[in-house]
Design a protein around this nucleic acid. Structure first.
Lengths: 245, 245
DNA sequence: ATTGCTCTTTGATGCAGATCAACAAGAAAG
DNA sequence: CTTTCTTGTTGATCTGCATCAAAGAGCAAT
């Protein structure tokens, strides 16, 4: 089920300025354009199985995917949420360490691993950008460790909503005018997997935050945030939300 | 309290082949040698405060340091354990995101940030190695997310011992001949901060693992592991311990 | 030897979140 | 319109770990 029809120009790409190719000059981009190919995945489909040989790396162009780890007895923990422009795969490693699953329909811009590695060795701009993105991912993972290890269920939910709001808002921390609203890209169960909770606890805490006026729900997915500061307070973050750059 | 007397040659450095300089040629090493300087920190001393301007980056040469995050009400979560050869600091970022604290006496090989960044831009070997190390750190952080989000207290303790054993053994997963023993570099409280537990729970689970013959204790710090497979089983990891490379 | 540390162990009790269970609300299929 | 499936909500109960509390063990200083 692959849609290979789209032969988009890199210049028009919606993630051109944020993905691993962000720093590339036009000639470098032209070379990438030659080796790239698009793949589409349906919602629910597994993109990469943990332990499998990785034959490609790539960027999420549209849609949302998750990175998860599963124990033998079935306990699951999501270890990353992949939004458009996020990079998938690890150059220099043969086997995937985590499952990658499409949560919505996903289009990826892929490169076979070997040509990409060669390209990376020859193109410092790609390696530089990948380093920058990896350092960001590492900081995000470490923030998540605080959440998983020390926050209460209520704080976890508030943090998740705040983080998704921040990422959807294009990294603007504050946006006081008008009421923020966030379209949660996750089911209750996926939220639970991300937060280290059960889906019942997620549901209960969502209801509690709604009852206390911290959020409003419109359907199951659309969350409105009347007061972002209030939400951040509930999240237990210091006021600035931890954006340093 | 800085010991600046040691003017070690990079060629003799104990972390020469594993640190950020691992891939450097002799001429590159010579340039690094010119801008490096050593700093010593006493056990318990804070090396970097979260939020402070980072004026230097560097590698742990000897000793053990921790990376921690603290909430306003005092809840703490360790987000990284820094052993010799690990890199501290983030090129391209002005302020530190986490506290770095010396757990034992620590010697660091430091570079002022700006010269190091310049050097990195000019020396692909350094950037390459840093990318590789950062990707490893990211994988480790994600493994830790599974531990924090889904493992029981007993599994957490077993996992910690297994991971430290693996790192101390120089990344050899198995070493069946003779009994493994591990010198825990952490107090019970530090273990608790790392595992998202209280120190009482850590103490209880250590006692339980000892009672069940999974480990033996010699003093408070020295742990002997009669059967590594048994320990890995208790850790809830799949048998291979997750080493992919 | 005694005092005062810090670190660790162990016990008693309480609670946040897991587990078990039932039901509601759409949405898609017949 | 009814059936079935998926997803979410809510209630009742259980339990693993936190919390509160006290005491032991090792070690340095006096």
């Amino acid at each position: 089920m692959q849609d290979l029809s789209a032969h988009q120009q890199c210049g028009d790409c919606p993630i051109r300025h944020r993905a691993v190719c962000a720093r590339c000059e036009t000639d470098e981009l032209a070379r990438l354009e030659q080796i790239k190919y698009y793949r589409s995945f349906q919602a629910g489909q597994t993109i990469i199985w943990s332990g499998d040989r990785m034959e490609f790396v790539g960027s999420v162009v549209t849609g949302i995917a998750t990175l998860t780890q599963t124990m033998e007895d079935g306990r699951r923990q999501m270890v990353g949420l992949l939004l458009p422009s996020d990079f998938v795969g690890r150059p220099g490693r043969a086997a995937a360490a985590f499952d990658v699953t499409a949560t919505t329909d996903v289009v990826m811009c892929c490169f076979r691993k070997k040509p990409f590695e060669d390209m990376m060795a020859a193109t410092p701009h790609i390696a530089q950008r990948l380093l920058e993105m990896t350092l960001d991912d590492l900081d995000a993972a470490r923030e998540w460790m605080l959440l998983l290890g020390r926050k209460t269920a209520r704080e976890k939910i508030a943090s998740l909503i705040a983080i998704i709001a921040r990422r959807e808002a294009g990294l603007q921390v504050r946006q006081r005018k008008g009421m923020l609203s966030v379209d949660l890209p996750l089911t209750r169960e996926e939220m639970a997997d991300y937060l280290g909770l059960t889906l019942e606890t997620v549901s209960r805490q969502m209801s509690a935050l709604k009852k206390d006026g911290v959020i409003t729900l419109e359907g199951n997915r659309l969350v409105r945030i009347p007061d972002l500061d209030r939400l951040l307070e509930e999240a237990g973050d210091d006021a600035d939300g931890g954006m340093l750059v």
